[in-house]
Design a protein around this nucleic acid. Structure first.
Lengths: 342, 342
DNA sequence: TGAGTCTTTGCAACCGGTTGCATTCGTCGG
DNA sequence: CCGACGAATGCAACCGGTTGCAAAGACTCA
């Protein structure tokens, strides 16, 4: 079926090595043979078999792209950027969907069978067991959107969720709200925990605040709507920091259904700044997460690991910023904008 | 680095063939050697190298998953279902992003280098050149969400876009609208053309209608909002069939910005029924596309092609249905529900 | 023209598996 | 106890490439 090295070699009247060498960067071939080989290859429509060559070179250019987040619209953008970025560097994403997988072993086994050169774990909710399992197996790994640590076990690229929590709390307080709420995602997600920590820290430093804390069952519209529905029934805070944009949109929907004016009766600030947050009929005030930089950097890291797998794990953080839209009332005139201490 | 067949064979005190055979279905191995081998393999943490074996077996279990649609939220669901479905059958999706690719050759070359067993083209906007190029190269291919044809050149799984156009037109007419509009996606997309054809067909059979036709620049929120903005400025129809849900939401946003009541002043019906269409603050009336069946079937087809690559190309269609929500006024009392003739 | 050097080329072994074939083993019937 | 037969095993070739090594070729310079 397929055209092989041998076929080309025969047609060109050279050895198989000569053919191989014309197709590998920086090998020594005379212009003359190169021409002969290229002509023969073109005539036969020859394509070198990347998998066969990986046997001897030990490189497949395959990168495992692992996620469990196939419901949050922002991840479509994540996949878009990852696949394009990898393609541009001649790497191929092997997609792994871990939606309902608790055990890293199965996916680890599979990715080793395909001898991927590296792995990108793109998820803020997968437990660190996963990236760690790859590291332990000697597979270069970077955890995108992972949890920051000053002693990272694997390469991490993401945002400082604690700082985001602080930023959100400051934003609510600066707008004069005295009764504020934290409406987090699942309590087990490290991102939720960190965001809460920052939020609580700022709140604790500010006396005289009334603070409510709840957690939605998932980072989803329905969960956000349900949880905000309960809050409204209980008697809601004036303004909320919601775990992410989808959750916020759910909360927004609940407020609208309850006849509450946003941001008049109820303020909301989300996190992510996904495309949809800017749609005029949603118009969500939110904290922007620099997805593009995170992904570009993740790819850079994984590429550099291909050459030096032993590089010490590093955590890279990118700053977030508040994007003012229509779900949080403006700063009172004369108020100083919230501090940005670091 | 990696543990190989040879290592296991030596530790188990058997030949390499014996090891190979214990790991291949239906090979003849005595229970005793099998046990020895399995023990040795477990001790060494051996994983057979899928790529090496593909050299002799000619099967990689790699499936190219190609799309150019990384902006429409429904495609997140599409990727979710495809990756899970393929994984469940022991196949691995190799993701290819064709967002700005006009020429099938590059991706064809790449997929052949990785000797994928088959290819799924998941897109309603990629020209038939793409699937055809794979077919011509002898790679099993199925075009999901592709254009129906009674003489299909490749396997196609999708919906009958012409019938969807008819369905939409009937829905608008049955609700008593006499001035209706078609707000399509890009005019070059076959899906747009087909939907228009069905729409126009029904409209032509119904005298006394006033009909407007426009096309948005893309299947996107912004394009839908912009185009509907222009329509409103020109003097809009009473109700529109929009190219898809994202476009509809853009149109909805434009209507709201212009102060038009939906569905009172302006009716909208979309197509796809993506998750977001059901969100209570969007609540879009739309035509449901059976994404799950399309994907399950696509996978079935590609799997069957693995065994019999020569199977005659077939087109499979799944019926769509109107989902009534809040952007189209209800049927007038006593009106008979729109016909469903076939 | 010839020695010395650098480039090009082919041979053959190897990457990690699979598989046809011949050999050996175990078992059963007579 | 022997022969026959099917099951289990190992050998060796092969899948489609890569690469170290030595030989051949091209070129420089005296």
């Amino acid at each position: 079926m397929g055209v092989t090295l041998k076929d080309v070699a025969e047609l060109a009247g050279v050895s198989r090595s000569a053919v191989s060498r014309t197709f590998t960067q920086g090998a020594s071939v005379s212009p003359k043979t190169r021409r002969k080989v290229e002509r023969a290859a073109a005539k036969l429509g020859y394509q070198p078999n990347a998998l066969a060559s990986s046997l001897t070179t030990g490189r497949t250019k395959l990168i495992g792209l692992i996620s469990n987040n196939f419901h949050n619209p922002i991840f479509l953008q994540v996949f878009d950027l990852f696949t394009r970025g990898l393609q541009e560097r001649g790497l191929r994403p092997l997609l792994v969907n871990l939606s309902e997988e608790r055990d890293p072993d199965a996916s680890l086994r599979m990715l080793r069978q395909y001898s991927v050169d590296g792995v990108i774990v793109a998820s803020s909710t997968l437990p660190p067991t996963f990236p760690r399992a790859f590291r332990d197996a000697g597979v270069p790994v970077v955890h995108s959107f992972g949890r920051f640590s000053s002693m990272p076990e694997v390469h991490v690229v993401g945002i400082d969720n604690v700082e985001c929590g602080r930023m959100a709390a400051r934003a609510l307080i600066a707008r004069g709200h005295r009764h504020i709420g934290f409406l987090g995602g699942p309590e087990t997600a490290t991102s939720t925990q960190d965001r809460y920590r920052g939020f609580a820290e700022v709140v604790a430093a500010q006396p005289g605040l009334q603070v409510g804390v709840t957690y939605a069952a998932a980072y989803s519209f329905e969960a956000g709507r349900a949880e905000m529905g309960r809050e409204i029934a209980r008697g809601p805070a004036e303004a909320y920091f919601c775990g992410d944009d989808v959750l916020s949109i759910g909360a927004l929907s609940a407020a609208q259904s309850a006849g509450l004016a946003v941001p008049g009766d109820l303020g909301l600030v989300g996190l992510n700044d996904m495309e949809m947050a800017g749609w005029q009929n949603i118009d969500l005030t939110t904290i922007h997460q620099p997805v593009r930089q995170i992904i570009d950097t993740s790819i850079d890291v994984v590429v550099s690991l291909l050459d030096d797998a032993e590089r010490l794990p590093e955590a890279r953080l990118f700053p977030c910023r508040l994007v003012e839209r229509g779900t949080l009332r403006p700063l009172p005139p004369g108020a100083e904008p919230e501090r940005r201490d670091r």
